[in-house]
Structure formats: structure tokens, C-alpha cells
Nucleic acid binder design. Structure first.
Ligand SMILES: Nc1ccn([C@H]2C[C@H](O)[C@@H](COP(=O)(O)OP(=O)(O)OP(=O)(O)O)O2)c(=O)n1
Ligand SMILES: [Mg+2]
Ligand SMILES: [Mg+2]
Length: 1225
DNA sequence: ATCCTCCCCTAC
DNA sequence: TAAGGTAGGGGAGGAT
């Protein structure tokens, strides 16, 4: 299992350290990648990615010896800068020692194999003339002459030489075919053929239920498409074996069984002295690249890389992840990285992983539809014994199988599916014959393209899904790379599901090539018969083989599939569970991935479930956490009580890109944020969802320069920031404004950004409940839509259609990227005159959703979201007051009279008025929350004030980070016993700390800097109409705009703005980039209307309920509208009637929270009080809670004749008045 | 105690 | 050259 990148290695390192400090070190546990190395590590090693101490630690952990001084037994000098070595007045022998970049250590550990150190060697500038010579010296005692030879070989074919000997000295030419690297890497590869033991299993009792191809031969090819020779030797035996290469590509790839055994490791030899020139690390690759033309290869020798036309016969196992071409002016990169306008579109088109997740969602829907439409199954005769079989069905090497199906000539050869065909060779594999070896060598060698799927012939060589093509090529130079065929996968997936749905009693789709099904049968044997029949049908329908595992629970079924593959079936009877589990590698357990495997291996030397069973539950829980520990404990024993679950609606929707992200300026990043926001918006539309929680994720490079994977993210620290918005954002630019603000708070220099993601949570749905709203649907209390809309919604007509003012918006298609639909509810009169509907009419439109508007206006108090205002520091509040005074009529916002408030509440469903909420938190003891600052408001402020607020927010983040850092244990400080989470020390806070001191990033202030940013009165200036960018005003919170509209004469509020109008009102810059990406078809556009969002369908999920209430309470900090409270009360009553106590409690608890919170307010700074006395609103939520509790009580008494037992937490908030009916039980 | 935010980990 | 996405479970640790 090779690590994909540096971060992988860092994670492994941390777990190693953490576990090892708490456990006796197990001999050999850490491996011995550098067993024969004696290293001197430059103390001046730069801070990134590791300092000397860390590197030393790592090297020691992997068997190296370390010298603090350069003694004569040192084999490698590790330095970032060879000058550090040369500057020291060194002894002669030192000059002969190779200077190797630290990446040799780190990347070797990453890949869990000893990489050729020569690939990382610093070369010296003199002696370029020596480059003709071919071979390095064989021994440590090389004379100067041999040193020259060695360096020449390095020059001619540096990587080839390197491949020959990773740690040991360069081997003589004749040793090429017996490359120690090959032997080592192969030996390091975990059992190459995971199937070996399975084949043995077939003779065991368990295998009673193990079968070959389906016994139903009709329409099924007898010969498996994919076959693996049972006697397939280990990859190590094949590497470098001439026969392997000599085998014609179109012949069966059965390796010779009498291949030589793995080569013994050669005696350790120190590297020879080298005196060559080093190419500076190019911008393109952080590794050295040969400065010489590859023609030189021909004059060199067998160890040189194969010239075009020659098979890569021997010693081809180098250049593992090394980009093959340089890109001197960065032109290629520029064209293919994130600054290219078409990048996003192309990226998502080509990303297999993107397709994978997209399909998973779609296929779940597809299966659900099939399920609904499927004919009723014939009832089983009563009285027959039943066996509830859980089956796991998975296509064999899915993508690769499709490739083979469509290219029969590939059936017997090792095939991988990847984007790796060399430039101009895209037609190679469709030629109906294999790619020529030279072509293959050209395109595959050193390719960092990832393998999505490899066939079982390829797996015989140790090739695995997820590996790079370059690495696969090392393992087997004969591999054929096939391109993706996404449409074909999708098609096959649907065929698969159709078959499964037809025969299952239940289905749970796991992925595009995989599902669990429950089949109620009479016996295990009967289940096996069904399985074989299914496999036959799948193959007939898709042309590809599937394997099936069967048992009585999901875990065992899943594990059985692994055993069954390829093209087989395997069943585990319950009574054989123990024997079956005993030998299972822990890595086969679902949920046990790279990190867990490493922890178990390094900490406890646990490799199999048998080993794992030795550990107590408590022990496992202390290391892996309560849940994971318990799961692990059970899984090791084959226990699993999960049942197949029906698909649930997604709880988040997002998009991220962690490849090709390269920027120079912040503005570029912002533009990209807008594009990506457009993408997310599109996905929300497609799903007919909105949301109120926005999360931005980012990756920041931990070191300068390009990572080994072309345009990859390399080793990064991850960051995320999230915010909650009181109302769902309206469109992509609205979303983008939040995204940009969140992103900016992370303060990542544009040049170090390597990944960006946007996720939206707390989703609301626009779809009315189809089969009639579930009676328990929580959307009942979001029900009061404008009458017109409610009426429309009662038909099956999408409600948003009603609110569309421009029909063209519904007809736009993909070609129109520049001016996407922007359907707004603009008829304020209609919205405002809405009245509460009865629960039966409950539809859509949460009352928390005011209609949007693009009206512009001066900034006044009414535009300031009170919650935001109150979250600001006192100084800034003061400044705001001063600024706003000239614009407002009064010195302070006018208190909302109770009478007016009442009017508002009863007349407008969208009645949120800024002023009513103004000082909910005014006297709150709660410190200001940086996350609570609405950045759209911020943007509307004068620049200098903006800056001040931003500085304050940064300070908030900084102090938070510093606190976190100071709490974290020092890295490697061994104090922590078996901790569940030993990684704290290297979380981003830490990453920011000492090592990054030399970077350009602005350092975080030591403390909040309210003091430093105070403005003098002369800095204040009123905001005039002209001073406000219209685009900013467009971005104002809806509540403010709404308030504005109420105050404006009706004529100035465009009831139905034309598209042109709306366009003008929007931000030009956001428009051009953002909406270019926002493609909405008619259906999507329907969902885009505002005021038509309700909570999602999976109603009683506690998260959903909680989120819903929180959205509600956030929107009305002063207390809810009466109608909403009534609606919720009715909902609660219905929950009581259905005995959904959990849901009742969740809802009340959420309301209780805000009631308790507002009860705490009211102590500080009277000077800041701006609005009417707090008493009224302060009690509002408590009263609401009371009312709700009473409703529950009433319903409870009505339904059950007894009172509901109040939860204890309810008593903690004394309730003022017990209302009627509440307590008379 | 519980919530909330920011991660980490896993799967395909 | 290359396309390392995403949803969901879950824990640590600060805030309340
Ligand atoms: N790292 C990965 C893993 C999988 N996939 C894609 C390609 C696979 O064909 C498909 C299904 O994944 P599986 O884990 O089922 O792997 P395969 O079907 O390829 O092989 P197996 O026979 O082991 O199921 O998902 C991918 O793109 N990248
Ligand atoms: Mg599969
Ligand atoms: Mg699968």
C-alpha cells in the first residue's frame, strides 16, 4: 500500500510515534527502508516540509543510522542545499559522498519502498564532459576514476542508474536485470496475489459454497473474461525476467511458473562519489530531472531507459512518480491549471472520482424508482424455513472489465484504466491491438496518472487500483492503458441494478458497481443458487463478470465477496464465522483504511482479524475511539448488526477541486471561488435544495514547488471555515460572497493554495412532499406561503413557477452561460399579504424567507442586521452608530413599537424586520462571534471600517488558533499514552507556528487588536448613495432589503423586474465569471425561486429537526411569529400522537436552547443598548417554549390520558407561567 | 453535560 | 504530462 503523498507519510509517522511511545517497540515494526544507510542530515535543513529533527526521527524510524558529524562511514549526506556541505571545510572523503535531497527519505517512506537515491541526488556543476561514461562504480572503495564513471552514468541516465540500486551502490551493468530495487519493491509489496489463499480455501469445508462460474450456462460465456492463472508467481519473480518481456503482447499473459525467485538483497554498498552538475529543481518538478537529451540513453547501456521502439526490458523500475517532461516556461501548466477559464468544466468532466460520487447519488434514485415500479414478488409458501441472506454484489475490476469487454484483444493482458495515454497516442488502444511496447513505455513510464481500475492479470503483478501508471509500469512493463468510458460504466451500472432490484427483497446501493441485497430464501444453499443466477444475468446483460459474497450479515457478505473475486461466489455459513475471520487481513474490514492499518501494524503488530481478536474492547476504544473501537472489536469477530438501509437524502451538497489549483493572486482565487460557487449552486438546483450552512475547505501547500504528482496538491495542511446564514442564499453570487469571505479568513497566500471546496449543509428542499406530505413532516411549520403559491403547490405544479416573472428563464439552456435565469419573487405585495395557511395547506415557503430584491438605497439602520451589529466589537459598533447617524433620521434606529411589530407579524409571512431583532444580543454576555458577522454587510461598509472589522475577525481566528496550538502536545513528546487522537500536534495551528516563520504570510497578531484599529472621529464619514456599489447592495441580506422595500413607495419597488433590470443590479464582475458556470435548465430554474424552500424529506432525522429549529430561531432572535409557533405546536402534537418522543424531545431541546440563551443576556454595557427594552423579546422564546411544551402536554393527555414526563433539562429553565391544560394531569 | 467547529478517516 | 471527488461517521477541544 503505497502512500499517495507526503501527507500520507506524515499521518503514518504520527500514528507511529503515538503508538510507539505507548507500546514497547516491536522489532521490525517500523520497517527498515534505510537499514543500510548511514546518514548525516544537514542541521540547516529548511523548515519545509520537515526540519532536521523530524527528518532524523523519520529516518531512524525506518532503520537508518544517523551521524551528527560527517564521519567516514556516512553513506549519504542529506541536505536541501549542497552548499551547506561544501561550505564546511570538509575532508576529502566528504567530497565523495553523495548529497541527497531530503525528499529521498520522505518520499521513500511515503511509498514504503526505498526509492533510488540517485533520483534525489544533488549534482555538482563541474565535469559535464564526463557524461559519456556509462556506469557507476560497483563499490564503496571507488577510486576517483570510478567516481567519474559513476557520475557519467548519472548524467547519461540518472534515473536508470538510480533504479538499479536504491540504497545500495550502483550495480554493474550485468546486474541490470536483477535490479535490487525491483526485488526490494516487489518484496515490499503486500502479498501480490491476494487470491492465493483463497484458491487454497476452495478445498476447505467452507468452500462447500464456493463456486466457479455460474452453473446456469444459458447465454453465459463459459470462459471467464478475466482469468488468473492459479500458479501466478509473485511479482517479484517476474520483475526483470526476460520472459515476461518477451511474451508477445497479444498472447496470454501467463507468467512462467518457473520464474526465478526474488533476488537476494545485495550487500550494502555505500554510494560512490559523484561530481556532477545538478539541474536546479525546476518549477515543474521538485525532483531532479536529467538535463541531458534522452538520446544519450542509447549510448549508455542496458540500464538506460529503453529507447523508443525497444521494450522496457530490464531495470525499468525507476522514475516511479517522476514527471517525464519538463515544462520550462510553465506554459503547459498554465494551460491546464485552475487559472484557465475552462478548467473547472474540463476537470469535472474528466474526474473519475467526481463521476463516481455523482453516479452513486443518481443510482440510488434510479434503484428507488425501479423498486417502486417493480412487480410484486410472488409470496413464498408459508411454513417453509427461511434464511435471510445478505448478499454483496460487486463487479469485477469494473472499469477495466468494460475496457476488456469492448476490446477483446485485451482480455488476457494486464490492463489498467487511466488517463495516461501519451500525447498523440489517444488512438493507440482502439487500434484493435495492443499498444506497442515503445508507445507504452513512452506514455506509461513515470506517469503519475492514477489507475482507476486494473484487471486481475495486472493484479498478479501487484498492480492495484489507485496506483500510478508509472508504478504499474515498473511492476509490469507490458501493461496496457485503456481510456475511460464513462457512459459505458453508467450504462452497465443501471443494468446491474435492474437485475438486482428484480430479485432482491431489499437493496442498498453502495456504488456504481456494487450493492447489498437482502434475499429471503429457504437456506444458504438456495441463496447460493440465486447468486449464481444473478451472476449469470449480470454477465449476460453487461458483458462483464460480477462476484457475490453471501452470509447472514453485511460484514461477512462483504468479506466473502473479496474471497469470491474474481468471477466467483462465496458464502460464509454462520457456524464458520470464526474460522473465516481468523485469517482475514484487517485491511479487508470495511472502515479499516490506510491509517488504521498502519496503527495496528506499527503499534501492535496486528495484521489479521485473529491478531485483532487478542485486543480487548476497551483497549481498542482507547486507541480508536468509542465507536470505531467497538466496531473494530465486533468486526474482528465477524459480528455486525447493521441492516440494509433505505437511501436517505443527502445532508450536504458540495464541490471541491484538489488538483490543478495554481494561482498567483488573490483575485484569481476569488474568481475561482465564484466559479465553484456557480457549480455548487447548479448542483443545489439540480437537487432542488437550498441550505443555510456554508463551509469552505482549502488546502495549503506545506512546501514550495511542485509535488511529485503532476499538478497534484502535494503535502498540504487542510483548513475549513463555516458559517450559518439565517436564510438560504439566493443565488450563486450570494453564495460566492460568503465563500470569498470565508476563504479570505483563512489567509492562505494564493500561491500556496492547492485545493478548494465548498459545501452547503442544513439543506432545505423545494419539492413538495410527493405522496402528500408525510403527516409528521416538519415542514408543517414552515408552511405559510403566499396564498397563490400555496394553491399552486397543492397541485403538483412546482410552486416556483408561480413566482417566475420571466418565462424565458425557464427556457434557457446550457448554451446560455452568461445570463442565467435569475428567478426572483419580486411581487412584494403578494408575499407580504400572505396569510397563514392551515396545516392541511402547509406547503413550501418558510416564513424565514423574505423575497429578494435588488433595490438600492443608502445605508441606514434598517439595513444593518442587528445580530451582526451586536456581534461586532464595541468600538466598531460605536463607529457604525456615528456613520449611520447622518443617513438615518434619528440618532438611533427607532424602536419598533409593539403595535407596529404586531402588524408586521400578522400581515407578512416574510415578516422578518430588522428592527425587531435589533438588540436581541445587545446585552448578551456572549462575546462577539467572528462567524456571526455577515460579510455582505461588511462589504457595504466603508473600506476603512471594513478593514477594521476584518482585522478583528482575523484576531479572533488567531487567538483561537493560538489557544489550540498551545494546548497541543509537542510533537513526538511521547507523553501521550495510547491516545485516541495522537495527531493534535500537527494540526494546522501547529503548521502555522515555528516552521513557517520565514514565509510571506502575515503573522497573526498576538492578541485581538481592537486597540490598534480605532479610528478617530475624523475618519468617519457618512455613506452616501453614490458611495455604495450597487452590487454590494444587491448582496445585502434580504431582511434589510425587505425592510427597505416596506419603506419605499410602492412604485419604486419593481413588482416584476425584467431580466435586464436584474442584470444591471447585480455585480458585473460576479456576473461575468460566476454565472458563466451556472447552467440551469428549466427544471433547475424552477427550484431557484425564493420563498419556496422547506426542510428536506427525511423528516425525523434528529439532525434535520435540530437544524430546522435552529434556522428558525436564528432568523427570529426576538421571538417567532405566532403562526410559526402554532404550526410547530401542531406538528409536535402530531408527533406525540405517533409516539415520536425522540423527535419531540429533539425539537423542544432545540427551542430550549435559544430560550436559555436569551435568558442569559442582560448584564453588560447599557450604553450600547440601541433599541427598545429587552424584556419583551427576552421572554419571547421562553414563552414559545412554554407554549410548545403545553401543546405537547395537551396532546399527550388527549392521546394517552396521562401527562408527558418532562425531561430534566426542561426544568432547568424556570417557566414563567404555566398555561392552561399544561399541568392538570 | 452538551453544543459547535474544525478537522480526520473511509469508501468507491 | 493530467483531471487527488465527496458524503457521512466521528472525535478533540473550546465555548457555553
Ligand atoms: N481508487 C479507486 C477505486 C475505484 N475506482 C473506480 C474504478 C473501479 O472499477 C470502480 C469500482 O471500484 P471497486 O473497488 O469495486 O474496484 P474494481 O471493481 O475495479 O475491482 P474489484 O474487482 O476489486 O471490485 O470504482 C476508482 O476510480 N478509483
Ligand atoms: Mg468492483
Ligand atoms: Mg465496488
Amino acid at each position: 500500500m503505497a502512500y499517495h503523498d507526503f501527507r500520507d507519510y506524515m499521518s503514518a509517522k504520527r500514528s507511529k510515534l503515538a503508538v510507539q511511545t505507548a507500546l514497547p517497540t516491536l522489532p521490525g515494526a517500523a520497517g527498515a527502508l534505510f537499514r543500510d544507510a548511514v546518514l548525516w542530515i544537514d542541521p540547516q535543513l529548511g523548515p519545509l516540509p520537515l526540519n532536521m529533527t523530524e527528518l532524523t526521527e523519520m529516518a531512524l524510524l525506518h532503520g537508518a543510522q544517523i551521524r551528527t558529524r560527517i564521519t567516514s562511514d556516512v553513506t549519504h549526506l542529506i541536505a536541501d542545499d549542497p552548499l551547506h556541505v561544501l561550505l564546511n571545510k570538509q575532508e576529502v572523503f566528504i567530497r565523495q559522498m553523495p548529497v541527497v535531497r531530503p525528499a529521498w527519505i520522505t518520499e521513500s517512506i511515503q511509498e514504503e519502498r526505498t526509492l533510488p537515491w540517485r533520483s534525489f541526488q544533488w549534482l555538482r556543476a563541474e565535469d559535464p564532459h564526463q557524461r559519456q561514461l556509462a556506469f557507476p562504480a560497483p563499490s564503496k572503495t571507488s577510486s576517483t576514476a570510478t567516481a567519474t564513471v559513476a557520475s557519467t552514468a548519472r548524467a547519461a541516465a540518472p534515473t536508470a542508474t538510480a533504479s538499479m540500486s536504491s540504497m545500495a551502490s550502483p550495480a554493474p551493468p550485468h546486474a541490470a536485470s536483477m535490479s535490487p530495487t525491483a526485488a526490494i519493491s516487489a518484496a515490499d509489496t503486500t502479498p501480490v496475489l491476494g487470491k492465493r489463499s483463497r484458491i487454497a480455501d476452495m478445498d476447505l469445508p467452507v468452500s462447500r459454497f464456493t463456486h466457479g462460474p455460474p452453473w446456469t450456462p444459458t447465454a453465459v460465456p463459459r470462459t471467464p473474461v478475466v482469468s488468473v492463472t492459479p500458479t501466478l508467481p509473485r511479482a517479484s519473480a517476474l520483475l526483470g525476467h526476460p520472459d515476461a518481456v518477451a511474451t508477445p503482447l497479444n498472447r496470454v499473459a501467463t507468467p512462467s511458473p518457473q520464474s526465478p525467485p526474488p533476488l537476494p538483497r545485495p550487500p550494502s554498498l555505500p554510494p560512490p562519489p559523484l561530481l556532477l552538475s545538478s539541474p536546479p529543481p525546476s518549477a515543474f518538478s521538485s525532483r531532479s530531472v536529467s538535463p541531458f537529451p534522452s538520446d544519450d540513453a542509447d549510448q549508455t547501456s542496458a540500464v538506460a531507459p529503453p529507447a523508443a521502439g525497444k521494450p522496457a526490458a530490464r531495470g525499468s523500475s525507476y522514475l516511479a512518480a517522476q514527471p517525464k517532461q519538463v515544462d520550462p516556461d510553465g506554459a503547459w501548466m498554465k494551460r491546464h491549471a485552475s487559472t484557465d477559464p475552462q478548467f473547472l468544466e474540463r476537470y469535472f468532466q474528466s474526474s473519475r472520482l467526481h463521476h463516481l460520487t455523482t453516479w452513486k447519488t443518481e443510482l440510488r434514485d434510479f434503484a428507488a424508482q425501479l423498486w417502486q415500479a417493480r412487480p410484486p414478488r410472488p409470496p413464498r409458501p408459508p411454513g417453509t424455513p427461511t434464511f435471510v441472506a445478505v448478499m454483496h454484489v460487486d463487479m469485477d475490476c469494473f472499469f477495466a472489465s468494460i475496457a476488456m469487454r469492448n476490446r477483446p484483444h485485451l482480455r488476457e493482458v494486464p490492463v489498467v484504466v487511466a488517463h495516461a495515454l501519451g500525447m498523440g497516442s489517444s488512438n493507440a488502444i482502439t487500434d484493435a491491438r495492443p499498444i506497442s511496447p515503445s508507445r507504452m513505455a513512452q506514455s506509461a513510464q513515470g506517469s503519475t496518472s492514477e489507475i482507476a481500475s486494473c484487471n486481475y492479470a495486472a493484479r498478479g503483478y501487484g498492480i492495484r487500483n489507485g496506483m500510478t501508471v508509472g508504478r504499474a509500469y515498473e511492476l509490469c512493463p507490458r501493461i496496457q492503458v485503456a481510456p475511460y468510458d464513462f457512459a459505458a460504466y453508467n450504462d452497465a451500472s443501471r443494468k446491474l441494478l435492474s437485475i438486482l432490484v428484480a430479485h432482491a427483497d431489499q437493496i442498498q446501493v453502495q456504488s456504481c458497481d456494487e450493492a447489498f441485497i437482502r434475499v429471503d430464501t429457504t437456506s444458504l444453499a438456495a441463496a447460493c443458487a440465486v447468486a449464481q443466477s444473478l451472476r449469470a444475468q449480470i454477465r449476460a446483460s453487461t458483458g462483464c463478470p460480477a462476484s457475490i459474497g453471501i452470509s447472514h450479515n453485511m460484514l461477512l457478505a462483504r468479506l466473502a465477496t473479496t474471497v469470491a473475486k474474481p468471477d466467483g461466489m462465496h458464502a460464509v455459513p454462520a457456524e464458520q464465522t470464526a474460522a473465516f475471520m481468523e485469517s482475514q487481513p484487517i485491511a479487508n474490514l470495511p472502515g479499516v483504511g490506510r491509517v488504521t492499518v498502519a496503527r495496528l501494524r506499527d503499534g501492535w503488530n496486528v495484521a489479521t482479524c485473529g491478531d485483532l481478536m487478542q485486543r480487548s474492547r476497551a483497549e481498542l476504544q482507547s486507541v480508536f475511539g468509542t465507536k470505531a473501537g467497538a466496531t473494530l472489536y465486533d468486526a474482528a469477530r465477524g459480528r455486525d448488526d447493521r441492516v440494509l438501509e433505505p437511501a436517505k437524502p443527502r445532508k450536504t451538497i458540495g464541490a471541491e477541486v484538489n488538483w490543478g489549483i495554481r494561482f498567483q493572486t488573490g483575485e484569481q482565487v476569488h474568481a475561482f471561488c465564484r466559479q465553484l460557487s456557480g457549480e455548487v449552486m447548479q448542483r443545489l438546483n439540480a437537487a432542488k435544495r437550498r441550505g443555510t450552512q456554508i463551509t469552505v475547505k482549502a488546502k495549503r501547500a506545506r512546501y514550495e514547488g511542485e509535488p511529485s504528482k503532476v499538478l497534484g496538491h502535494g503535502l498540504c495542511d487542510d483548513f475549513s471555515k463555516s458559517t450559518r446564514v439565517p436564510r438560504p442564499f439566493r443565488d450563486a453570487s450570494d453564495l460566492a460572497a460568503h465563500v470569498v469571505a470565508l476563504y479570505d479568513r483563512m489567509e492562505i497566500p494564493a500561491s500556496k493554495l492547492r485545493g478548494l471546496g465548498i459545501h452547503v449543509g442544513q439543506l432545505l428542499a423545494s419539492t413538495p412532499g410527493r405522496d402528500g406530505a408525510h403527516p409528521l413532516h416538519p415542514s408543517v411549520f414552515f408552511k405559510r406561503a403566499p396564498t397563490l403559491e400555496a394553491a399552486a403547490a397543492r397541485t403538483d405544479e412546482p410552486i416556483s413557477k408561480v413566482s417566475h416573472v420571466d418565462d424565458d428563464d425557464n427556457n434557457n439552456d446550457n448554451h446560455r452561460k452568461d445570463a442565467p435565469p435569475h428567478p426572483h419573487i419580486t411581487d412584494v405585495g403578494t408575499a407580504a399579504s400572505a396569510v397563514a395557511q392551515s396545516p392541511a395547506q402547509a406547503q413550501l415557503a418558510p416564513s424565514t424567507l423574505p423575497p429578494p430584491s435588488s433595490v438600492t438605497h443608502d445605508m441606514t439602520w434598517s439595513q444593518i442586521d442587528p445580530a451582526v451589529y451586536n456581534s461586532l466589537p464595541a468600538e466598531i459598533q460605536g463607529e457604525l452608530r456615528e456613520i449611520l447617524q447622518p443617513a438615518g433620521a434619528a440618532a438611533a434606529p427607532p424602536p419598533l413599537s409593539p403595535a407596529r411589530a404586531a402588524t408586521t407579524m400578522t400581515t407578512a409571512s416574510v415578516s422578518m424586520t430588522s428592527t425587531t431583532t435589533a438588540n436581541r444580543r445587545e446585552r448578551s454576555a456572549t462575546p462577539p462571534d467572528a462567524n456571526a458577522v455577515d460579510l455582505r454587510v461588511l462589504e457595504a461598509l466603508p473600506p476603512d471600517i471594513q478593514e477594521e472589522v476584518r482585522a478583528w475577525m482575523r484576531a479572533q481566528d488567531a487567538t483561537r488558533q493560538q489557544r489550540a496550538a498551545s494546548m497541543a502536545p509537542a510533537p513526538g513528546a511521547g507523553v501521550t499514552p495510547l491516545r485516541h487522537r495522537p495527531l493534535a500536534a500537527s494540526r494546522p495551528a501547529h503548521a502555522d507556528a515555528p516552521g513557517d516563520a520565514d514565509e510571506q504570510e502575515p503573522e497573526q497578531p498576538e492578541q485581538p487588536n481592537e486597540d490598534t484599529a480605532v479610528l478617530t472621529p475624523s475618519d468617519f464619514r457618512p455613506v452616501s448613495r453614490d458611495a455604495i456599489d450597487p452590487s454590494v447592495l444587491k448582496a445585502l441580506p434580504e431582511a434589510m432589503v425587505r425592510e427597505l422595500e416596506r419603506q419605499l413607495p410602492r412604485t419604486e419597488t419593481p413588482a416584476t423586474p425584467t431580466r435586464a433590470l436584474r442584470r444591471r443590479a447585480a455585480s458585473p464582475r460576479a456576473r461575468s465569471t460566476l454565472h458563466a458556470a451556472e447552467r440551469e435548465d428549466a427544471a433547475d430554474a424552477d427550484a431557484d425561486a425564493d420563498g419556496a424552500w422547506k426542510t428536506i424529506d427525511d423528516a425525523l432525522d434528529p439532525d434535520v429537526l435540530h437544524g430546522m429549529v435552529r434556522t428558525w430561531t436564528d432568523a427570529y432572535p426576538d421571538g417567532p411569529l405566532r403562526g410559526d409557533t402554532q404550526a410547530l405546536a401542531a406538528f409536535l402534537a402530531s408527533l406525540v400522537a405517533e409516539a415520536q418522543w425522540q423527535a419531540v424531545e429533539t425539537l423542544l431541546r432545540a427551542v430550549h436552547r435559544i430560550a436559555a440563551t436569551s435568558a442569559l443576556s442582560g448584564t453588560d454595557d447599557d450604553d450600547l443598548r440601541l433599541l427598545d427594552p429587552l424584556e419583551v423579546s427576552q421572554a419571547a422564546w421562553k414563552t414559545t417554549l412554554d407554549q410548545l411544551v403545553d401543546a405537547v402536554q395537551t396532546a399527550c393527555v388527549a392521546a394517552y390520558g396521562a401527562a408527558w414526563q418532562l425531561p430534566s433539562w426542561l426544568d432547568q429553565t424556570p417557566r414563567e407561567i404555566q398555561r392552561k391544560g399544561g399541568n392538570n394531569h
